[in-house]
Design a protein around this nucleic acid. Sequence first.
DNA 1: CTCATTTTGTGCAGACGTTGTACAAATACA
DNA 2: TGTATTTGTACAACGTCTGCACAAAATGAG
Lengths: 410, 410
Amino acid sequence: MTPDLSTPISGTPGNDSANNATRLLTALHRRGGTATRAELTAELDCGRSAISYALADLVERGLVTVDEHPQQAATGAMAGTGGGRGRPSHLVSVAPTSPIVIAVHLRVDTLDVSAFELGGTMLRIEREAVEPSPDVEMTMHRIGRLVRLVAEESRRPCIGVGVSLPSPVRATDGYALAPRHMNWPGIPARDLVAAELADVPALCGLPVHVGNDANLAALAEHVHGAGKEARNMLFVTTEHIGIGGGLISSGRLFTGASGYAMEVGHTTANPGGEPCRCGARGCLETEADPRALLRAAGRLDTPTTGLEYRARVVLSDAAAGDPVAREAADTVSGRVGAGLAVLVNLLDPDRIVLGGLLARLLAVAPEPLSNALHEGSFLERAVAVPVVAAALPAPALVGAAELALTPLLA
Amino acid sequence: MTPDLSTPISGTPGNDSANNATRLLTALHRRGGTATRAELTAELDCGRSAISYALADLVERGLVTVDEHPQQAATGAMAGTGGGRGRPSHLVSVAPTSPIVIAVHLRVDTLDVSAFELGGTMLRIEREAVEPSPDVEMTMHRIGRLVRLVAEESRRPCIGVGVSLPSPVRATDGYALAPRHMNWPGIPARDLVAAELADVPALCGLPVHVGNDANLAALAEHVHGAGKEARNMLFVTTEHIGIGGGLISSGRLFTGASGYAMEVGHTTANPGGEPCRCGARGCLETEADPRALLRAAGRLDTPTTGLEYRARVVLSDAAAGDPVAREAADTVSGRVGAGLAVLVNLLDPDRIVLGGLLARLLAVAPEPLSNALHEGSFLERAVAVPVVAAALPAPALVGAAELALTPLLA
DNA sequence: CTCATTTTGTGCAGACGTTGTACAAATACA
DNA sequence: TGTATTTGTACAACGTCTGCACAAAATGAG
């Protein structure tokens, strides 16, 4: 039974993308793929009949299944209703026949390709090492090969491909403006990936969505990770070189007009600090990325290899008591806090999520960060923004899947 | 005939705020209060029958009127359809019985209170001079008196009051955190204004909406002014002291989690510049507000009186050829461009609207601004963001009205 | 074990907004 | 005067949501 998505999920005539069927599917997705009917009724705030109606539609399309006797399946306690009185609620789950999406995450040294289903469950992952190569074509071929492999082996209908790239990405056409640390020129990423899928009938013509890695990581952390309940979540991360960011406002990713928004790397973190390639001094990017931490620790010998790993070693040394490493961690932590202060004044988030090396830095040296944030932001002094570490192991990959799933959930 | 708003405008069961009646009303509002049925049909992208249905609802509620013979009323050319073939389209207008809102704008030296109807038309305005006084209570009384006066004399049902304050405003309860240059402490502005209306039966219990002046000005410029077609509009303005900003993203005001967002005054405009009260140096607020322009021109004698007027004189002198004034204008213009560059990198707007003194500065010295913006923002180099002057004479006042109208249009 | 209580799913009638079609109305142009 | 063109209206049909009454499935007290 293949899902029928030929007609829109809404039967509502007109321009309604907020009907109960779609809302139900979204609520199920945000809960990780399983929920009781009672929970969904409460969350959608509508009558039980409306849920019946919407569920019947989704079941008929093969998107969800309903288990009417969940107490038998579950092992003992946590079954169905949760132990209260009354008739136990049916368990709604993502159907094993439901469509999947393929997520791609290209980093400097690795290429991840993975299949996701509704609910954000990762079904399968393929990882390959990638050498920093200027050969765009070859990399695209590798992406195409892995996508075809993953799609084929999952034996489920695929409804889209999401691609996470370390580059600003133009929203209109998925053009990657300047892929970082790859020595690549701008590339029409969406079209290139789509071309790789043209041969396979099951994938040909499939929508390909491309996004910036930090933006997508922010999206993922908001939907499934450390920013679940936040209404206005700021995400900041660093991997290898540079600093990336993302903002989730009223449940949606803030992309800006072109898709280039939230390039937080050139926020001032240390006035009069190191000169940045952007022309200014003391940018967050030059004061708080892995290279900056290595520099502060006096370990920036060979600048280009294994930056992130070596920076992690600095942090673990700091945690172990190495005074120089500790000093470096504190310094960089303070810089991060100063940079965040600028962002808080502008964006007024109710939660800040830190990813990559910044998450580890937060664990090792939290005080300088929060002190600098507090001092630098009059707004933080008024509202006390919580700063937490990212919760997902591969947020950008999950975010790429999220991007590919949006047509189904919007 | 009094409008009937007891039942929601949508008859749609469920949670639909995007039905055709509301969309039609919004489209009419954005067009300034008049539009032909044909225009509305095209904009809403639905059949003519649906417009009939929605219109009947709105007419019955007394919100709009339909003129079926517009060619007789209009003087000659620009009547109804616009001169094409075929049957001329009926003219839809905001009804003279439709409800109004009262807008309040408190500045350092003036208090404006005004009535607006749908379409953004200002019906009546009362202006009073205000001396910078620490007496909160007296100012509230004056606001209350003017609101009652305007509401009474307009003899139309009032559905809300919007208040624009020079202060960050908490979204949840309309608390004004720190009213600028008034020496006021934080005040529960919404409740204070609401208390002033408690005596009058026609106004008692009316929803009072409070917002930051720059935020509301941004909203107004987006709906009725220089940012009409922009999808992601950045607004920056300055009046007297400090710099305010606002962002409109996907048609809605970006307020942040608490309502304090877009405090752009502490964006770095000149690294190593003047020390700012926030602790940093070279903030936009200290480098580009009226005081900064006066300082650059060597005219900052008595720092607190008539700052904005005297700054305008510097600009007109610069335009007239005064070399010192010209130099000052160019310097400040460059600082503004540098500050905007930081914001562009973060927010990726497709239009920047400048208000207040910055609009005048843009007219007198556009090049330093655009050069600094271009140099400071790698993003601007990629997409070329247009910078334009605000188009409304009193944007914050219009924005306050806009705020009070949102319940009707949302 | 039985019965009342509680909570949940279903069936059915009704309401409402939207759509498409067919038809009438009102203009410009030949 | 007639044709082409554009616009408003009437009407039937459809799909979604709601509320109500009723049935189903559990717990807990007697």
